[in-house]
Design a protein around this nucleic acid. Structure first.
Lengths: 227, 227
DNA sequence: TTCCATTGAATGATCGTTCAATCAATGGCA
DNA sequence: TGCCATTGATTGAACGATCATTCAATGGAA
């Protein structure tokens, strides 16, 4: 969880438990963000306190207000971390995909179900933020730019596919709106009924939609019984 | 908001503001549930306190613990009220619809976007509950039976339609799963971007999906630019 | 007068935040 | 290298605010 990005200092001096007492700001901030994700997933935002976060991180109570302006700031940085992580993933998938528009679009879809992105823990945190009625505008404006880019790219791809295939009954914008709804809706199903769904099947549901809308450009996945 | 169900006592004696001081348990409970919906929509679950609820209801602080076992019990009764309200609506729509399976199914879809059900306030409350990570199991088991019925009915209808039309590429169960995901996902879009979507357009998105999956049984809605 | 709904002050618990004290790492100096 | 002063990270007790809940007192209906 972000540990890739942040270098741990070389082990020079360690306390009896093998942990350095002091670390760089960067390391501590990520450590606290990771602990916040764990705490929200387990206790919800309402049940997440400075105590739960610092206890999970194995640090002392006062340290959050040293590395973050406030608890609210810690929450916002946590949301931003998840948004950036997702953004990196789909952008990388997009770049590495084949050159055709369907391949590019399917890469974006698939990125939603990567093991690093689509974990029960992170889904719980996403919907914890989305569900915070009092601060929806704050959270939305935080990730708006990041989300907008994905929307725009998908719209461009769908327009190209629709043009190429002469698909006229559902305009590209509506296809993208349905796609975006499906991401969220299927994520919520995965979160609510984890025993009934697998990531791969969830992904196939979206692929099936695309195969129906753009039949000459996407292959219908094979569905077994159940799932 | 439920006011239809609960009779206000006849006005016999009123205080200077024109309100009776005492009311039946039934009236007070609904009054507090309505106030809870308002409070959650405005402040979130975390920001909803005994004070915010009783202030909105125009009652005194201590009254919630007189009519409900606890704050948590008030929250659960509120969720249950919304679930039952939704259940009533789609069941009535289902009964009043035409006899064919497509008509029945579309009635269930449409019920999700009734003005009484699909309000910004109530959507905010739904997702506030879904987002509560710490108590997801509690809330889920509360509404599970109610939701299961809709799922089963929809599955039966889709099976009938698939049989009738010889649709074989997406099994009925997967169609229903996608439908359920679309309800949630489109509700979330309506909640997050209320300025970009209208209820009727949101409903057409689902109708468009059905027209693609069961083309001989559902008509593709006409999409204008935008929306 | 009886009964029950209603009130709101009081209580104890828990929260976010502050900050003086403490600890460890680093750089300069001998 | 060995030693010390400086810097900055870390700790946790303390504080004030806010919360859910309790309950004795009050009000109104029958």
């Amino acid at each position: 969880m972000g540990c890739i990005l942040v270098r741990q200092s070389p082990i020079e001096k360690t306390n009896p438990e093998g942990r350095r007492r002091t670390e760089s700001k960067e390391v501590r901030r990520q450590q606290l963000i990771d602990a916040t994700i764990d705490s929200i997933a387990e206790n919800g935002i309402g049940g997440t306190t400075m105590s739960t976060v610092t206890e999970i991180a194995g640090l002392s109570l006062g340290i959050v207000n040293f590395h973050f302006k406030s608890k609210q700031n810690l929450l916002e940085e946590t949301l931003l971390f998840l948004a950036k992580e997702h953004h990196e993933q789909w952008l990388e998938a997009f770049d590495n995909a084949g050159l055709s528009a369907p391949e590019k679009l399917l890469a974006i879809v698939d990125a939603h179900f990567y093991p690093q992105i689509c974990t029960p823990k992170k889904l719980a945190v996403w919907f914890a933020f989305f569900g915070e009625a009092g601060r929806r505008e704050v959270y939305r404006s935080l990730i708006n730019d990041i989300d907008q880019e994905r929307y725009d790219v998908a719209l461009r791809l769908c327009s190209e596919i629709a043009e190429d295939g002469g698909y006229k009954d559902i305009p590209p914008r509506q296809v993208v709106n349905i796609l975006e709804s499906l991401y969220d809706g299927i994520w919520l199903e995965l979160l609510t009924y984890p025993e009934n769904f697998q990531r791969s099947v969830a992904r196939d549901h979206i692929a099936a939609f695309l195969a129906k809308v753009y039949p000459d450009h996407f292959r219908m996945p094979a569905f077994k019984n159940g799932g």
